[in-house]
Computed example of a mutant assay.
Amino acid sequence: MKYCAFLRGVNVKGTNMKMADVCQVFKEAGMQDVSSVLASGNIVFSSDKNAGELRIILEKAMSDHFSYEAFLFIKSQEETQVFWDSIPFEKNNDLHIYAFVGNPGVENVLMTEFEAASKAENEKALIIKDIFYWQVPKGNTLDSSFGKVLGKKSLKDQFTSRNINTFEKILKKMN
């Protein structure tokens, strides 16, 4: 089965790694057809194991190799397609749209945080098919009230986010 591993916290805040090295760790952990998409920690691969087994194996392999606490989220090709097919917002050159990959139920935690945050004009969030989507004006991602919530240490093992354009690139690589 084809999967994508979405790594959390890669190439930000001092956790730097080359995607070629990450791909090698995946290969050494028994994954096949391994390749990366962008430098933000998206690894496409094949395996006969289920997503739960893969997460345990790959988090340990990444943590051991890179000497950091690795968090990653595994989605099948079909699950990854749902992220792209369910985008609730119209594309707009002035706005970023993010989808959040995470543990079951994290979309509700994120929505609670979003509802409590102050918002910029055109900043919106929706949950579609248990996926949290966030639209934010370009240039406001890290400065927004909700953007600051995303860095909370208490949430670091719960989710990661990607610009929706990344899902398009991942799906092209999977196909």
Rank of each mutant, 00 (worst) to 15 (best):
S36V: 10
N11D: 09
A29V: 05
N11R: 07
F26M: 12
K13N: 12
F26V: 15
V25C: 01
C23L: 12
T15H: 15
N16G: 13
N11W: 09
M31V: 08
T15Y: 13
F26I: 15
V10F: 06
S36A: 05
D33H: 13
V10S: 02
F26C: 11
S35K: 14
N11P: 13
G30M: 01
G30W: 05
A20K: 05
N11T: 05
Q32Y: 14
C23Y: 10
V37F: 14
V22N: 01
M19C: 03
A39M: 03
V25E: 00
D33E: 13
G14L: 02
A39D: 07
A20W: 00
V22P: 01
S40N: 15
F26A: 12
K18I: 02
T15E: 05
C23A: 09
M17V: 06
D33Y: 11
C23V: 10
D33F: 11
V10L: 08
K27D: 00
K13V: 10
A29M: 07
K13I: 06
N16W: 12
G30A: 00
S40Y: 15
V22F: 04
D33C: 14
M19Q: 10
K27N: 10
V34A: 15
Q32V: 10
L38D: 03
S36L: 07
K13P: 07
C23H: 07
Q24E: 15
V37Q: 13
V37S: 11
M31H: 11
K27L: 10
D33M: 03
M31K: 08
S36Y: 00
S36K: 01
V34Y: 12
M19I: 08
C23W: 09
V34F: 13
M19R: 08
G14H: 01
M31W: 13
D33L: 08
S35I: 03
V12H: 04
D33Q: 08
K13D: 11
E28R: 00
M31P: 08
K27W: 14
V25L: 03
T15S: 04
G30V: 01
V22L: 07
G14N: 05
